[in-house]
């Protein structure tokens, strides 16, 4: 009887040890398969919750609908005019580029994704996206919104991807201050979703030109994030106790607490690989470019 107990205990210990020491690729494959299996359920539940939120929002705001409608009509008229002007400018720009023999600097494309979940364990600051390797999303790619950079992909399965947010302490981004050109490495401070500041830049020289409100963009160094993506703004600057370095605390441009949609910056190779893996896949691609100055 005692022998059987020990055999059972050893079997359990062995099972756990095997699970903990599986090769990375196998472990990722197992995790990916389970995640893909549960993601439709997750997306459906998330969709239901969002519908309910929309209904409550609508019920709360129905009195202001007439006023809002009027304001939106005015905005449409204004934006249509702006759009016409922008089209003219784009045509001129294209023509001038052709005359100068310009080529697009970055071959990056955007894959649009819906946020279907947040980190449920609380150990990291992550979001789950509803597109994965089948749509051209790969590991270690920048994730952005219309407002700016939000993080990078860290675990990609066939149909989902987890993105590590800027606010996570393990998320490091090589950045540059737009105004003064000062370089630095930004790291998250573990802020809760929606809380500011989300990150900081340590070890800035004490005489570096950093001011409150300065715009922070990606520097492109390290190759992970394309150059020129808007990250956020300097909230405040502190001198360290020894008076040798400055620390800049940053607010993110994108609201990390209210993410509903995001874009993954994919390369042409990523998309080709996805097409090769699944030729009939719906890519969910946005007709946008991640070239410098064309993304946030």
């Amino acid at each position: 009887m005692k022998d059987r107990k020990w055999i059972a205990l050893s079997a359990v210990a062995l099972a756990v040890l095997v699970m903990m020491n599986l090769p990375d690729a196998t472990s990722q494959r197992v995790k990916g398969a389970v995640r893909d299996g549960i993601s439709p359920l997750q997306a459906a539940l998330r969709g239901g919750v969002r519908e309910m939120q929309d209904i409550f929002r609508y019920m709360r705001g129905w009195r202001d609908l007439a006023l809002e409608n009027r304001a939106l009509t005015e905005e449409i008229v204004y934006l249509r005019g702006e759009m016409r002007m922008a089209r003219d400018l784009e045509r001129n720009n294209q023509m001038l580029r052709e005359l100068l023999g310009f080529v697009r600097r970055s071959p990056n494309r955007l894959v649009s994704c819906e946020v279907i979940g947040r980190d449920s364990t609380g150990w990291w600051q992550t979001i789950r996206l509803d597109q994965g390797a089948h749509s051209g999303v790969m590991d270690e790619r920048a994730v952005i919104t219309a407002d700016g950079l939000v993080g990078r992909t860290v675990a990609v399965s066939a149909r989902t991807a987890d993105a590590l947010l800027l606010s996570d302490p393990t998320c490091k981004v090589a950045v540059r201050l737009s105004r003064s050109g000062v370089f630095g490495v930004m790291s998250g401070v573990g802020a809760k979703p929606g809380e500011q500041p989300v990150a900081r830049i340590d070890f800035l020289l004490k005489d570096a030109d950093v001011q409150e409100g300065d715009e922070i963009v990606t520097s492109g160094l390290g190759g992970l994030f394309p150059k020129g993506l808007l990250v956020g703004h300097v909230r405040n600057v502190e001198l360290d106790e020894a008076g040798l370095y400055q620390t800049a605390w940053l607010n993110s441009a994108a609201d990390l607490g209210r993410l509903e949609y995001a874009f993954v910056v994919a390369t042409e190779q990523d998309l080709e690989q996805a097409v090769m893996e699944d030729s009939s896949v719906d890519m969910g691609l946005v007709d946008g470019r991640a070239a410098e100055g064309e993304t946030p």
Binding site: M20, L22, A33, S120, D162
Partner: peptide, 9 residues
């Protein structure tokens, strides 16, 4: 573990 970044096991 599969639904988060926690290593398997």
């Amino acid at each position: 573990d599969s639904l988060s970044l926690v290593p398997l096991g």
